[in-house]
Nucleic acid binder design. Structure first.
Length: 470
RNA sequence: GGAGCCAUCGCCAAGUUGGUAAGGCCGUAGAUUGCAAAUCUGCUAUUCACCAGUUCGAGUCUGGUUGGCUCCUCCA
């Protein structure tokens, strides 16, 4: 397995901390709003990573956190009048359901910041005890970046310039401009506040954003002398400052590096611009799923190398659907039946492609070639049972590795068609078949037009007339 | 202002020890079909934003130009 490491900025052969095992931690969402396509892409990328490792025989432990305490959440709590718990559990639930619809396997560990406070407090206390963090007069705790000589190693950022400094929040008590909050003390009665005054040397309040990941990783994973986890992932925007700060906290608190490899996925863009809440151009997953099938969305969002930016377009999504359709048409052609075993060369080629830093483009082209070759062979010999069984096995392997192609093919082409419409279509088709038998082609063509108007396309085969949602 | 990434056929997109351009969509010619659809076959970039350089040889390395994006502020 070769992975592109964002820190070393090069592809590296993957060597796990423990033989045969991989530990992955991915930064999950802050749960104060609906997930958009960008969240989906990040989830999808690491789902692909996890599936590839599993297919290669690794034992994978994947963690994805939920940031369920943060300024934006507090703001939303104040606006909505709901409790924080109500609000965050609503969005967590919805997030999980939407990711399910995209065929993303649930993480093995889904830690929440509010459930990790002890670990967070302990890590902050360690940093204070080591004189790496300091408490301000208001009770906030800051990380002193000047105490970490390795600070900057992750993002390779050098000294701050004036323009940068002017953008950073003003706090005269900060010792260095780049110092960041580990803990924010309660300021007013409305603030959501965790009682830590009795157990720590800092006042009650709530954790800063960066500390939760470091603390949760330490809590849930046991690494070796050098590293805590194998892979830390997230969106490209998290590289700095989030991951830089995480790395600094962990390094200083534990004495070893947080992660051996760092992976970052590219953005989903709309009209060439990053999709983000501040730009107001978010395409929410809940809306996308109303219009498109989750499997098609998955195929589409995963069809490009995860590190590249991804410009969303409806036309390209339709192209992806056509490509996926071809796989299902082949599946329909070789169904029903039992699968035998996957073609060894095909399997190896797919694994090789995915082992090259998840080269999905090569994988998809291999699948297209397999489809063409199989269709060709089936044209020459329609009753090749062995080939049909092997093809079924190949498609099962695709589903396991890449997460699509697993549906029953006839139902795949009828997604969104209700019983009523189905009966209507079948009635029209049988009338048309009758007309065809009587060679009344004028009538059969009229009936076909009627069916087309229902948004259904039909195809005559040796086994009768089949139909699909157009 | 500082830092980084990217630029390959009409569209999407592979191509990291430099060796002579994957795949998909679209288009097009044919096979098949009552006609379609689906499927199959053929065709579809002497060329990789531009300029200069290194080299026997560069999309792939170096320098520059132009254009786009991102991070430095919450963000996947």
């Amino acid at each position: 397995m070769q992975l592109f490491d964002s820190v070393q900025k090069t592809k590296l052969p993957f060597e796990p901390i423990y033989d045969g095992k991989v530990s992955i931690y991915v930064c999950g969402p802050t749960v104060y709003d609906d997930a958009h396509l960008g969240h989906a892409r990040a989830s999808l990328a690491f789902d692909l990573l996890s599936r590839t490792f599993k297919a290669l025989g690794f034992q994978v432990t994947m963690a994805k956190n939920f940031t369920d305490i943060d300024d934006k959440i507090i703001k939303k709590v104040e606006e909505s009048g709901k409790s924080m718990k109500e609000l965050t559990s609503f969005y967590i639930q919805r997030y999980l359901e939407e990711m399910d619809a995209l065929g993303i396997a649930r993480a093995d560990i889904e830690p929440k910041a509010t459930e990790s406070l002890t670990a967070i407090e302990q890590m902050i206390q360690i940093l204070i005890d080591k004189d790496i963090a300091y408490v301000t007069s208001t009770g906030d705790v800051y990380f002193d970046t000047s105490k970490d000589s390795a600070y900057g190693n992750i993002s390779h950022r050098v000294a701050d310039d004036k323009a940068t400094l002017s953008r950073v929040e003003h706090n005269s008590e900060k010792r260095n401009p780049k110092d960041f909050a580990l803990w924010k003390a309660c300021k007013g009665s409305d603030d959501i506040c965790f009682d830590t005054a009795s157990t720590t040397s800092f006042s009650s309040g709530r954790p800063g954003w960066h500390i939760e990941c470091s603390a949760m990783i330490e809590k849930h994973f046991k690494g070796n002398e050098q590293y805590t986890i194998d892979i830390h992932g997230g969106g490209a925007d998290l590289l700095f400052p989030h991951h830089e700060n995480e790395a600094a906290q962990s390094r200083c608190a534990t004495g070893h590096e947080l992660a051996k490899y760092w992976m970052h996925n590219g953005f989903v863009q709309i009209n060439g611009e990053k999709m983000s809440k501040s730009l107001g151009n978010s395409f929410f997953l809940k809306d996308a799923l109303k219009v498109y099938d989750g499997e098609v969305l998955r195929y589409y969002l995963n069809s490009v190398y995860y590190r590249n930016d991804f410009n969303f377009s409806e036309e390209e999504l339709q192209t992806s659907k056509k490509r996926l359709d071809k796989l299902y048409r082949l599946k329909k052609r070789v169904s029903p039946g039992k699968s035998s075993s996957v073609n060894k060369e095909f399997k190896k080629a797919l694994l090789d492609a995915m082992s090259d830093d998840l080269n999905i483009s090569i994988s998809l082209s291999l699948i297209d070639e397999m489809i063409a070759t199989t269709n060709d062979a089936l044209d020459a010999n329609p009753k090749d049972k062995a080939l049909k069984k092997e093809t079924l096995a190949n498609i099962e392997f695709i589903d396991t590795l890449l997460g699509f192609g697993g549906k029953e093919p006839f139902s795949y082409f009828q997604i969104g068609v209700d019983e009523n419409l189905k009966n209507k279509i079948e009635t029209l088709i049988s009338e048309r078949t009758k007309a065809k038998k009587e060679k009344d082609f004028a009538r059969s063509d009229t009936l076909r037009d009627e069916i087309l108007e229902l948004g259904i396309s039909i195809m005559d085969t040796a086994d009768g007339t089949l139909w699909e949602k157009a």
